[in-house]
Amino acid sequence: MSQLSRDEVAHLADLARIDLDAAELDHLAPQLNVILEAVASISGVAGDDVPPTSHPIPLTNVFREDVVVPGLTAEQALSGAPEAEEQRFRVPRILGDEQ
């Protein structure tokens, strides 16, 4: 599997919302490639007949009763907020668009 270019690493940092400066890119990019080279060794190890494992101990249908349980007070909810206003989390202006 291919090596990551410096631009690709910058794109990954962008997807991950990490503001890497040039020095960090130079520092991390080669390390990422070393790691990717190592993990690439599993390509082709398991054939199409092998089912994927997403949970080591398989369970199914774990459901909750539709019954209200007490949660947090607004004070508790906002206790860690960097900024709060009108009992809401205050966040910087949101660029782009409603999702």
Binding site: V68, L72, T73, A74, Q87
Partner: peptide
């Protein structure tokens, strides 16, 4: 288990 009702004081139906 938080209530799923419409309205309610801000951040009072959270866990």
């Amino acid at each position: 288990g938080c209530p799923a009702v419409f309205g309610g004081e801000p951040n009072t139906q959270v866990c």
